[in-house]
Design a protein around this nucleic acid. Structure first.
Length: 272
DNA sequence: CCCGGAACCTGAAGGC
DNA sequence: TGCCTTCAGGTTCCGG
């Protein structure tokens, strides 16, 4: 599923293909992909705008257009963006196409139709409530402590909240907790100073590694050129149901936390 | 505010 | 083999 490393990879690989290009039009195969404004207004508003720049914030991809407009894309669970030059080779499950000048197309694929595009002027309306970017320098163990303060919910559940920290999803939450040797059900506010330090370091480490490997292709995620990412091969616990812990060899555990499948090693991540 | 569960969707995987 | 059920999990909404 697209989390911070996957969206960062999409941004990095999309940028040289689309920045500076003008949008000649949009095809909506499924109008539900447009969150706001109405599909018709969206089509009119995007047409003939130029893509000036590309940013990521949390799991949001932000296309800066001229006139002060932002085209915001969220891939949700099964979305991916691919770029191609031949409409006859439109990928399966393409729900929307952004046509660029010169015959290039951005295909928004999404089997489950959860992804969303929005055209807005005010970035804060979309990303204003997001928590800190975990890979920026201002994300410190002290900030992590402050973000978890007062939260008695399971740590894993709190890590998935985008207004606490932006960009972490189910896979990288499991990986970060394993690397930090902390049980996912540990009460979020109850971490010791050492656990906070380990978790802070682990979050950054697993996200950086995910970006280096160009994201994890466990389900539908593909890079803009159609290639898979490689991060799933390096996962220690995520998506490794019924397998053994790569560290101690004991069977991994699988439980549901807030309805999310959670993989961990009960031996290396004791609840105590 | 905090917390947990349901809903949105549909292809893939598992069970019988 | 084929039908049926369950699972996947990012975000938003809702009830307690």
């Amino acid at each position: 599923m697209p989390e911070l490393p996957e969206v960062e990879t999409v941004k990095n690989e999309l940028a040289p293909l689309v920045i500076g290009r003008q949008i000649s039009g949009v095809t909506l195969n499924w109008e539900g992909m447009v969150g706001q404004p109405s599909p018709k207004e969206f089509e009119r508003g995007v047409k003939d705008k130029r893509i000036l720049n590309l940013y990521r914030r949390g799991k949001y991809l932000l296309l800066e257009l001229n006139g002060g407009w932002l085209l915001v894309i969220h891939l949700r669970m099964t979305g991916s963006l691919e770029v191609g030059d031949d409409l006859a080779k439109t990928p399966l499950y393409t729900r929307a196409i952004i046509h660029l000048e010169g015959g290039r197309h951005i295909y928004f694929r999404d089997p489950r139709k959860f992804g969303k595009m929005k055209l807005v002027k005010d970035a804060a309306s979309i990303i204003g409530k997001l928590g800190p970017e975990p890979l920026e320098d201002n994300f410190t163990p002290a900030v992590l402590k402050e973000r978890l303060a007062g939260r008695k919910a399971p740590l894993k559940a709190v890590l998935l909240e985008q207004n606490v920290i932006a960009g972490i999803g189910n896979m990288y939450a499991d990986e970060a907790l394993f690397a930090a040797r902390i049980h996912p059900l540990k009460e979020a506010e109850a971490l010791s100073a050492d656990e906070l330090k380990r978790l802070h370091q682990s979050i950054r480490q697993v996200l950086k590694k995910g970006i280096e490997l160009k994201g994890a292709s466990v389900s539908n995620y593909l890079r803009p050129g159609g290639q898979k990412g490689g991060a799933q091969r390096e996962f220690n616990v995520a998506h490794r149901k019924n397998e053994d812990c790569p560290h101690c060899g004991n069977p991994l555990d699988y439980i549901k936390i807030r309805g999310r499948g959670s993989h961990f090693c009960p031996c290396c991540q004791p609840l105590k």
